[in-house]
Simulated scan of single mutants.
Amino acid sequence: MKVLVFGDGPFASLVWYCLKHDSRHEVAAFTVEGDFLSKDRHNDLPVHAFEDIEGNFDPSKTAIAVAIGPHDNNRVRARLLAQVKARGFQTISYLASRAIAWPDFKLEENTFIFDGAVIQPFATIGRNCIIRSAVHVSHHVRVEDRCFVAAGACVGGSTSIGAGSFIGLNATIHDNIEIAPNCVIAAGSVLTRSTEPGGVYAGVPARKLRQS
């Protein structure tokens, strides 16, 4: 089955490279929304407008990796994934060979877990999540759908990360924390208490700055 990468920015390039060198998937092309189509090739592969993609690829024989970052609390990636599925395309996920996850870990749709990440026993990662390099997800952690956890973040045991949340570079989340949906935890922050929905938190210890 051929694979398309949705996006043509740096993160899409990263996903393309990882799939090319560390998976069984063959990436055939990139696709973007027509309003953002600014070039016809990316990484020596064609770029197609998503609105016209069926003219080049049969949905029953093609999967799409929605390689979009945490824009608008991950809502852009969620919207595009819904459109991909509505058009009849399949989806893929990626677990790096250099990541550590236990045999009973379940990899959900359009979730990407990069090199050096550690997913401990009893931890769960939801649909449409991005877990970047060297992230540590401790035992019994629950990461809900459409979250983005940036490189080097450490999430303590039995913590819950609500849907749509963003955890910044090298952030530390203490054990038994409840991060409410759509929160932003800034890079380098140390979160020691649970959060309110949609809050932006930063500092050591992290304090609420504003609503996202």
Rank of each mutant, 00 (worst) to 15 (best):
L4E: 05
V5W: 03
G7A: 09
D8E: 11
G9P: 03
G9Q: 00
V15I: 15
Y17P: 00
S23K: 03
H25V: 01
H25M: 04
T31H: 07
T31Y: 04
V32S: 06
E33F: 07
G34W: 02
F36I: 00
L37W: 02
R41F: 03
D44S: 14
D44E: 15
V47G: 11
A49E: 11
A49W: 02
A49C: 14
E51M: 04
D52K: 13
D52Y: 01
E54A: 14
G55D: 13
G55Y: 02
G55L: 10
F57H: 08
S60W: 01
K61L: 08
I64Y: 04
A67Y: 01
G69K: 05
H71Q: 11
N74Y: 04
N74F: 04
R75L: 13
V76G: 04
R77F: 02
R77T: 06
L80K: 15
L80M: 15
A82V: 00
K85F: 01
K85L: 15
A86L: 09
R87P: 05
F89V: 07
Q90W: 02
T91E: 15
T91L: 13
I92G: 10
Y94S: 11
L95H: 11
S97C: 06
A99F: 01
A101T: 09
K106S: 12
L107F: 06
L107E: 10
E108F: 06
E109Q: 14
E109M: 10
E109P: 15
F112L: 09
I113D: 14
D115C: 13
D115P: 03
F122W: 04
I125H: 12
C129P: 07
R132W: 12
V135C: 11
H140P: 00
E144S: 12
E144Q: 15
R146N: 11
F148W: 11
G152Q: 08
A153K: 08
V155L: 15
G156L: 10
G156I: 10
S158F: 11
S158R: 14
S158D: 09
S160N: 06
G162P: 06
A163P: 01
G164F: 06
I167H: 01
T172H: 06
N176P: 00
A180C: 02
P181L: 08
N182M: 03
C183M: 11
C183F: 09
V184R: 14
V184Y: 14
A186L: 10
A187K: 03
G188K: 08
R193P: 03
S194Y: 07
T195I: 14
V200Y: 08
Y201A: 07
G203A: 04
G203H: 05
G203I: 04
V204T: 13
V204N: 14
P205G: 12
Q211D: 09
Q211I: 05
